[in-house]
């Protein structure tokens, strides 16, 4: 009954057609799942797309088995500081980072398999009052952190064996940086969104802060997920974690904005609102290419085509409870949908 109430009939077809359940994994030892991610892992010369699940005190690596089943390969036990999120490193193998902390991120750790001594290891990468962290191509990690006096924006390069090399600092803006996104197709460009709703652009090679552009009052509390440059414009995919259905016209969950970095002027390209009938707010989400997925306070997961600005699929809360996590598994077109009890469902989209 609950499912029927939350899923208007017009969305039923799209729900059935767009997402197909491929497999399910359940960590019976996990009491409270906090994050899930897909990662390339190689063992005995065989490279596979594996799944990493995190609960507050441990992180587990799962590999695909026959008949759509999953087997746990290894579990890293963490200390007393709870895991907050998994930080995937794009285009890497046998490496994944995690952020730990209480209310905010206090440290970032690297989890890895070392072929040097044939063992799974963990290594401390960074500590501090960390506001945002993102894995970059080329086995690098960017983070923003605050001391009493100033903000530090730093890039750390990680070696294959996990040892961190010398860091590089980027020129910090005055406002706190809350999220980062690499600019696709531009190796040396990075963007961030700040606490006062600005987009900042850096040159990664020189560390220069190139531009600060205000997102605009019609898109408050924006978090950047993706950026790419085309025809002299910088396109940025933003989410709005406070988006409500009642404000769906003026307060979308996701939007694409085109900025002219030369003039700092911008214009909205598309916006994606919460599907009708879903009371409440956007909770958290993920973007891959032109697809966005988000968990809503109704307990459902909604999927949007960002170029069309349309909701294309809907996963209502299942009999076991509400969804709590939605992550794209790259490079496959799969959605990882997680529940608090440690159940992760893999859907083909």
């Amino acid at each position: 009954d609950t499912v029927e109430q939350l899923t208007p009939a017009l969305l039923d077809d799209l729900r059935e057609e767009s997402l197909q359940l491929v497999s399910k994994l359940k960590d019976s030892s996990s009491s409270c799942a906090v994050d899930v991610s897909a990662v390339w892992w190689e063992a005995a010369g065989c490279r596979e797309l594996c799944v990493v699940t995190a609960c507050e005190s441990s992180v587990s690596l799962w590999k695909p088995l026959a008949s759509d089943r999953w087997g746990k390969v290894y579990t890293w036990q963490l200390g007393e500081i709870p895991v907050i999120q998994i930080v995937p490193l794009p285009d890497t193998c046998n490496l994944v980072c995690i952020a730990l902390g209480d209310l905010e991120i206090g440290e970032v750790r690297l989890l890895l398999y070392s072929s040097e001594n044939d063992s799974f290891k963990q290594a401390l990468v960074k500590t501090g009052n960390i506001k945002a962290v993102l894995g970059l191509k080329g086995r690098r990690l960017v983070s923003s952190s605050r001391t009493m006096q100033e903000q530090q924006v730093e890039i750390v390069s990680l070696s294959e064996t996990g040892r961190s090399r010398d860091g590089q600092t980027l020129m910090p803006p005055e406002e706190t940086v809350l999220a980062f996104a690499e600019v696709e197709g531009m190796r040396d460009a990075l963007v961030g969104t700040t606490a006062v709703n600005s987009i900042v652009v850096w040159n990664l090679k020189t560390g220069q802060l190139l531009k600060k552009m205000h997102v605009g009052y019609s898109h408050p509390a924006s978090i950047c997920h993706r950026a790419y440059s085309d025809s002299g414009l910088l396109f940025v995919v933003l989410s709005h974690p406070h988006a409500k259905e009642s404000e769906s016209c003026g307060n979308p969950a996701f939007c694409v904005i085109a900025f002219n970095p030369k003039t700092a002027r911008s214009t909205g390209v598309t916006s994606s609102s919460l599907p009708p009938g879903h009371a409440g707010r956007y909770l958290e989400g993920d973007v891959k290419d032109a697809s966005a997925a988000a968990v809503l306070t109704s307990g459902a997961i909604a999927v949007w085509d960002l170029l069309l600005g349309q909701c294309t699929a809907l996963l209502p809360p299942g009999p076991a409870g509400s969804w709590s996590l939605a992550r794209w598994a790259t490079p496959s077109a799969c959605l990882l949908a997680g529940q608090r009890d440690g159940t992760v469902c893999l859907y083909r989209y």
Binding site: M186, T206, S231, N260, R265
Partner: peptide, 23 residues
């Protein structure tokens, strides 16, 4: 979106801003 809304557009915006910005 039109150029009149966004101002003059440059395909080399990244290189031009890098040349102008303080280092």
């Amino acid at each position: 979106c039109s150029e009149s809304d966004l101002g003059p557009i440059s395909l080399n915006w990244f290189e031009e801003l890098s040349a102008e910005a303080p280092s």
